[in-house]
Amino acid sequence: MQTPRRPASIKKWNRRIHIWLGLYMLLFLWVIAVSGLFMNHPGWFNAQPVRTSVEQTVMMPDAVTDLEKATDIMDQLGITGEVLIRGNTPEGKFNFTCVRPNLRQFVSVDLATFNATLQLVDLQLVGTLGDLHTFTGVRGIYREPNSIRDWLPTRIWSFSMDAVAIGVILMVLTSLYMGWQRLKVHPLGSMASFALGIIVTVYFMWGLAWLG
């Protein structure tokens, strides 16, 4: 005779969420963790970006905004990416940068000759990892007067970073619940490792500012 299946308890669901989140985010976490490590140690690698340059004549569009003009020129040049328009374009030029995590594409259009110079900077693997770590489309370092995410993959990646961050917070909460459940089994080790982490965090968050 079959016994009816009991609904999963909170404990089971907590573990299930922990496992599922961890497995779903596995590759994202690896990339974020490894790129963070590399960014902390820029001296470990000496991969120089590879630069190339091409020139092409373009039609200057009658678009209203700089973003629309840049998008039209990008279509003509056959490039895609997040558009960065800084406010310091020299007289007689229309300059913008089109960025992807692995590639910087600097476009400079001469408004007299409509000659567009496209400089491509391939960031190589380590540079790409670093850029994935920071690729939000709206960084202050870009110095854009009006910074928006104008490329769909940027918005998706940015959303993914939010999702991974929220996922990590949920992983921490579910792990604390599991730690609490196992406190009777491993009281000393659990308390010691948790307390050590908290003490170090408090020291860096508040201690260094106040203690000097």
């Binding site: 990590v168 992983m171 792990s175 604390l176 599991m178 730690g179 196992r182 982490g197 170090v200």
Partner: peptide, 13 residues
Amino acid sequence: LYGGLFVCSFLLI
């Protein structure tokens, strides 16, 4: 378990 409990506050930061 121990590794997770140690880094959980850093991960939150």
